[in-house]
Design a protein around this nucleic acid. Structure first.
Length: 572
DNA sequence: GCCGTTTTCGGCCCGACTGTTTTCAGTCG
């Protein structure tokens, strides 16, 4: 049983305890424990074997025993027992906006409702109205919530939400009513999916700002509105929350509403330890009157004795401690990127020519690109036969003669076959400037076989980097099971590069693992996997993910300048 | 259930909004 499964079970227990009406602090302890386990970098089985679990903060006697049981037996009696008391459908009910554990519990106990369907029916029959703490509005809202869930998975890839959010921010700025406007929330932190858009504005006329906001063309309808907060739905179905504060409060509110929740909690703890209280309105001394003044977030962090923490890494995974010690990384930026690998052209399934790709890359300020069409076993994508490879090579050489200070590298995205071998003979592989090895078939191998497959591919001396290491498609498909720790270890030992595929559906390697790869000394290549010249632009999403993974320019393969890259890729 | 140079008991982050109440619980972020 791995970390993720254990964390999942602990989280589930936390939720069930809430549904059973247990102490909220008890369920929080389980949530904390789950998160702690999820973020462990040490091997959980090793920790259990050495009986060192209890040393981990957040794991006490009870959780220690339960995790041991899970690791040793793959089961947990307590979990099985408690699960009998909580119908599984109640978890679905919790997803209905407006319904929390208390209300769901009432629905179950008073009306015996255990599924979304039963809830919908009961709403139509007006049975919710007379329940304690319920009423007509609650019932109506629940019904709407069910419709919403039916219509919508409720999560969006962040680039989609980002475009909408930017339009809203611009619209509000143009009104001239707001002093400052910013995107906040998980969108500002660039998490791979978001469920809503958070926007923060400051100004003296909150009512006018909210009026203006609700009139913006993308806003479909306003769901709720108070004196400082407005919730609405966009025409695309995305929920958006607008919050308005006084301009002096803006930096504190921006920090507060950017989160993450875990980061905020840790920051409040820290502030408390220093004799302050922080909330969205300011930093207050123990006496409570009057906030400290801060012009912006920079000053906010400075006042609390911290370096400025970029939003992307505010996940309470050590950023506060690092900021305290002045050890925060200087996160990679778009301008650090010197070249772009993993580009498909018309030779396989791309729609742009090599020349168009080169032109666009030069406009983007790049110094080199690496062409890597699909290899011969990728029939579905028009993979290159050996004679195609030669033809493409000639074109690349011809084009390279045209540019000064810009280079096109000739590469290939070679399929990793089921046994871990690649689909060209060694002498063909050796003739490329670089080779990306990727899995495009047989996703259903078991974890051990898949791990060996990837390890063997990395061991091939001609392989430069491993492409999209887990094959996941966000919101669509789980990655295949694989022991990433071992794959990264192998890459580290052999000096191989691992791709961070910048396609917003992939973002693979996951940013959480990027940080691990960095620790182990593996360089990451931020690759757009472009199938058109516009696709090159996806690289910005890869940079976002890399930043979330604490990567610096020195950790990123394609931040290497052209001259050095030419030396690196020179084949013997 | 976790945690402790304030503590082994009594805390545990904080505030807005809604809807149901008639002073507040529940939900959400």
């Amino acid at each position: 049983m791995d970390r993720k499964e254990i964390a999942q079970i602990l989280t589930e227990i936390g939720t069930m305890l809430e549904l059973l009406g247990e102490s909220p602090f008890k369920s929080r302890a389980y949530y904390n424990g789950a998160r702690t386990i999820e973020l462990l970098t040490e091997d959980i089985e090793e920790l259990v074997r050495q009986d060192r679990l209890k040393e981990v903060r957040g794991i006490g006697k009870a959780l220690d025993e339960k995790i041991k049981e899970l690791v040793n037996t793959g089961r947990l009696e307590y979990y099985d027992r408690i699960r009998e008391k909580v119908p599984p459908g109640l978890f679905d009910l919790l997803k209905v906006p407006g319904l929390g554990p208390k209300k769901v519990r009432t629905l179950y106990e008073k009306l015996g409702i255990t599924t979304l369907g039963e809830l919908e029916y009961s709403c139509i029959e007006n049975r919710l109205i007379d329940l304690p703490g319920f009423g007509e509005k609650t019932q109506k809202k629940a019904l709407e919530g069910i419709q919403y869930l039916k219509r919508n998975r409720g999560r969006y890839l962040y680039p989609e939400a980002l475009d909408k959010a930017r339009a809203l921010v611009d619209g509000l700025r143009e009104s001239g009513l707001a002093s400052r406007v910013s995107i906040a929330g998980s969108l500002r932190r660039r998490t791979e999916t978001v469920k809503d858009i958070d926007i923060l504005a400051s100004g003296d006329l909150p009512e006018a700002i909210m009026d203006e906001f609700s009139r913006l063309p993308w806003v479909d309808r306003v769901l709720e509105r108070g004196s400082s907060k407005l919730g609405a739905v966009l025409d695309s179905g995305i929920r958006v929350d607008l919050r308005v504060v006084d301009d002096g409060q803006f930096p504190f509110a921006l920090h507060h509403f950017t989160g993450s929740k875990e980061h905020n909690t840790a920051m409040r703890h820290r502030a408390k330890g220093m004799g302050f209280k922080i909330n969205e309105y300011g930093i207050f001394g123990e006496s409570g009157e009057g906030s400290v003044q801060c012009a912006d977030e920079q000053e906010f962090f400075k006042y609390l004795g911290l370096q400025y923490i970029p939003p992307e890494i505010r996940e309470n995974t050590g950023e506060i401690e690092a900021a305290e010690q002045g050890r925060l990384p200087r996160l990679v930026e778009y301008d650090d990127i010197k070249g772009i690998f993993h580009i498909h052209t018309r030779y396989s399934d791309g729609i742009s020519s090599i020349e168009e790709m080169a032109k666009r890359a030069i406009e983007m300020g790049m110094f080199y690109i690496g062409i890597s069409d699909h290899s011969r076993s990728a029939y579905y994508a028009g993979g290159l036969k050996e004679e195609d490879v030669l033809r493409q090579r000639e074109e690349i050489e011809r084009l390279n003669g045209l540019y000064e200070g810009f280079r096109i590298f000739a590469g290939i995205e070679s399929d990793i076959l089921t046994d871990g071998s690649l689909d060209y003979p060694d002498e063909v592989l050796a003739s490329f400037d670089f080779v990306i090895a990727s899995v495009h078939s047989a996703f259903t191998l078991d974890r051990e076989t898949m791990t060996k497959r990837l390890v063997r591919a990395l061991e091939n001396p001609h392989v430069t980097m491993l492409g999209h290491p887990t094959g996941r498609l966000i919101l669509a498909r789980e990655g295949y099971p694989v022991d990433l720790e071992r794959v990264i270890e192998t890459a580290a030992g052999l000096g191989k590069v691992i791709e961070l595929n910048a396609n917003p559906y992939r973002l693979d390697l996951d940013w959480r693992w990027c940080r691990r790869a960095k620790e182990m000394g593996v360089r990451i290549s931020i690759n757009p996997d472009a199938h058109s010249s516009e696709g090159l632009g996806d690289i910005v999403y890869g940079v976002d993910a890399a930043r979330k993974g604490w990567l610096e320019a020195g950790d990123v393969f394609n931040c290497i300048p052209l001259a050095e890259m030419e030396r690196l890729l020179k084949r013997a």
